[in-house]
Write a protein that binds this DNA or RNA. Sequence first.
DNA 1: CTTGACAGTTCAATTATAGAACTTTAGTGG
DNA 2: CCACTAAAGTTCTATAATTGAACTGTCAAG
Lengths: 171, 171
Amino acid sequence: MKWDELEEEPCSLARTVAVIGDRWSLLILRECFLRTRRFEGFQSALGITRHLLAERLKKLVRLGVLRRIPYQESPKRHEYILTQKGLDLYPIIMSIVHWGDTHMVDERGRPLLHEHKSCGKMFDPVLVCSECGEPVTAKGVHVHPGPGKRVPRAAADLPKAAKTKTRSRAV
Amino acid sequence: MKWDELEEEPCSLARTVAVIGDRWSLLILRECFLRTRRFEGFQSALGITRHLLAERLKKLVRLGVLRRIPYQESPKRHEYILTQKGLDLYPIIMSIVHWGDTHMVDERGRPLLHEHKSCGKMFDPVLVCSECGEPVTAKGVHVHPGPGKRVPRAAADLPKAAKTKTRSRAV
DNA sequence: CTTGACAGTTCAATTATAGAACTTTAGTGG
DNA sequence: CCACTAAAGTTCTATAATTGAACTGTCAAG
């Protein structure tokens, strides 16, 4: 499967992985949330090669996650800022950071602590149900086919006999 | 930067990206949450090459995200199941799926809908503050250095004059 | 008129991934 | 006994992605 095919899959996870599922995109986006905006800033903060950084920034702009806006004329210079689509990635970033805080810290503890401005306390992010407000777990979720569901790649390609039975599943 | 170095970074996001930040790991984990457990199951559902699948499964086992347990003797066969560490990835997966549902769907709508068993309603996941229960946004969060904070790579490698000023930042 | 910053581009060398065939252990049907 | 199938990998070559380093173009300052 190529990256482009990934974008076409009838799966919201696969389509999002097509955007952020590589070694660098999430790190670049972390820097965006840390208020880095310029090429040199990303490059020196991350140690990414300039070649790849240019490529990834282009891709994120093409996908509508970043916007490239001029901040000076002569010589023309641009900076990269998060669009709303980009800002909406924050829950993903926070969930990732929280998992790292829980499972990947060394003896010395967390690299960063987060304060929720509106309540003033150090907090952890919790994923809850939009309807009842209770925390969401894998076992507590039942999945139904939606309008955008297609027969998955594997089942479509394989002979009829090989089709896997469908079942309610937790993603 | 190599994958191994990524694991060492004093950043919970980088360390988590070292685990799931490639083309396939998240898709394999999606299948795990969809109750796939066996080699052939992953392979036919994803279309990943067998070579890479074997490698990724090994990696996820080594990192403690999956456990490899025998389900029959002669011939010895094993299946892969999520550990608690793996189950804890669910908020990341759900956040990713939700972003895809919001920003990457075609005209036909979402591939899947999610029902929250305990309240019986179709829902979206919302990230809230563990302390006050209010939704978390990038702008509403203030970051403080934690005990595991080290001077970042870039600042440590560069001459003193080039050190970037520290600032409270939103990741 | 030389130096430096910024935002890239170019190119060779190294790694990773894709695609396909092959291996091992065992069960099944004839 | 023999061919065929299945699961779970392994091995191999070709192709694609990434790295590392140098190079380009525009302007400003000294």
